[in-house]
Amino acid sequence: MNSFFHFTARNPKVTHRAATPLELMFDLASVIAIAAAAHGLAHAIEEAHTLQGIIGFLCSFFMIWWAWMNYTWFASAYDDNSSAFRILTMVIMFGSLMLAAGIDAVFDHERIWLALLGFVVMRLGMAVFWLGASRGDPDRRTTALRYAGGIAAMQIYWIALVVIVPPTTAFYLPLFILGAIGELSVPALAEHRGVTTWHRHHLIERYGLLNIIVLGETFIAITAMIQIEGGSAFPDADLFWLAALSAVIAFSLWGLYFTDEEHLASDELRHAMVWGYGHFALFAAGAATGAGMLVMLQSLDPAAHVDPQTGVLATVIPVAIYLLTLWAIRDRFCLSGAAQWILPAVAVLVFLMALLAPLALELIALVLMATVLIRRGLTRSTMKDTT
């Protein structure tokens, strides 16, 4: 390890820093796990186990997102394209695939042996990364060692939780939440001793790419809606219309995320952590929107016994959370005046429409599409006024 695992800090001011093919491969491993979590949520809602499904989804999505986020920030600061970096990355990717294979146990209320093993492999791989950074970046040696020690300690906690506490007991969820808080605390405590050299524009791109991946869960549902079955020449008209409305919703979420304003406008650590951590809710909501669309599809099958209203709410509630989160992590920092409050207002409006309005899905798709156009126009005029 002394000669092989040795990662030096990258220059955070390098221009045109883009995602590497290795990082894109890492995202591909993550999307498998995200898809497994989203499908588990959809199945739980269809079986009228909504609360259990939401808890299982959030717990499994936390493990996926947290491992992805830690790797992404480390790579932004220390990716040297060395053989050691590539090998460790592939080990972590294999852990992600094990996590994906074990997610079903989360929704079945069984001990999550395989998911735990995958998560521990991913996290211990990160601990080795930070030990290498402690050797290659003497100025931040204390920071790197705190990361490595904190990550290793939390893996002991997770192993003890799964081994000792059955998932059906009342203490399991509070202890899981406590572990999540512990994991979230590691970067805050470590970076307090010296901020690592992450690259702001690189991270903005990396987060945008993962957002595209989670929104891709909606494409799985849309494709299922327009599949031709029973020897028909064309898709069912009702399903085709549902697919069209779902596509408008998905494209609108994409359009509201990728706007003219720059994400993470400040390098200040507190702002960066709000932005970085806040994306958990946004990413989870994007994946859950795809799960909700699958529930809407099932609601059109009489044999499934799924209430159509359940399918609409399963889609629209994540959409509202997506919009509110996007406001919390970006718009309230970069916009002013009426434009700043567009997303919260639309989030409330689409939720009320889902509860009360006839033709709710049609109206929601129309409102979201209009929101993309109106917000883009307002923000562009604001930018012109300030130049």
Rank of each mutant, 00 (worst) to 15 (best):
L114A: 08
L124P: 05
R200T: 05
L215S: 00
Y71A: 07
A84H: 09
A37H: 01
L245A: 07
T8Y: 09
L58F: 15
A287N: 05
R123C: 09
F5R: 07
I321V: 15
A237G: 10
G150L: 05
A44W: 05
P302V: 13
A152S: 12
T168E: 15
G231S: 03
M273G: 03
M293S: 01
P308T: 11
A233F: 08
F280A: 03
D80W: 14
M225E: 02
G136P: 13
I103C: 04
L114F: 05
A100P: 02
Q340F: 11
F119V: 01
L131K: 02
L58T: 03
I212C: 02
G53A: 05
L256E: 12
Q52L: 10
L215G: 00
I204D: 07
V319F: 00
V248I: 10
V163A: 08
L297S: 04
L300G: 09
L300V: 10
V316N: 01
R376Q: 12
Y147G: 01
I112K: 09
L343G: 01
S82F: 14
A153G: 15
A19V: 13
F62A: 03
E229P: 04
L313C: 05
H279A: 11
L22C: 11
F240S: 05
I87R: 08
S266R: 10
M63R: 00
D236E: 11
M296T: 03
A247T: 13
G125F: 00
R146T: 08
S381L: 13
L22Y: 01
R141E: 12
P174M: 13
I164R: 06
L335P: 08
M90C: 06
W130E: 05
V121A: 05
A328V: 15
E47P: 12
A67V: 06
A127V: 13
Y147S: 02
G194N: 13
F4D: 07
F171H: 13
D80P: 08
T143L: 06
L349V: 05
I151E: 03
V346Y: 00
R330L: 01
H109K: 10
H202D: 14
A100C: 13
E362M: 12
H202S: 07
A84F: 10
P318A: 09
W241K: 10
A328T: 10
G194E: 02
L210E: 05
I329T: 05
L378K: 01
G53M: 02
L178E: 06
M90A: 03
K13A: 15
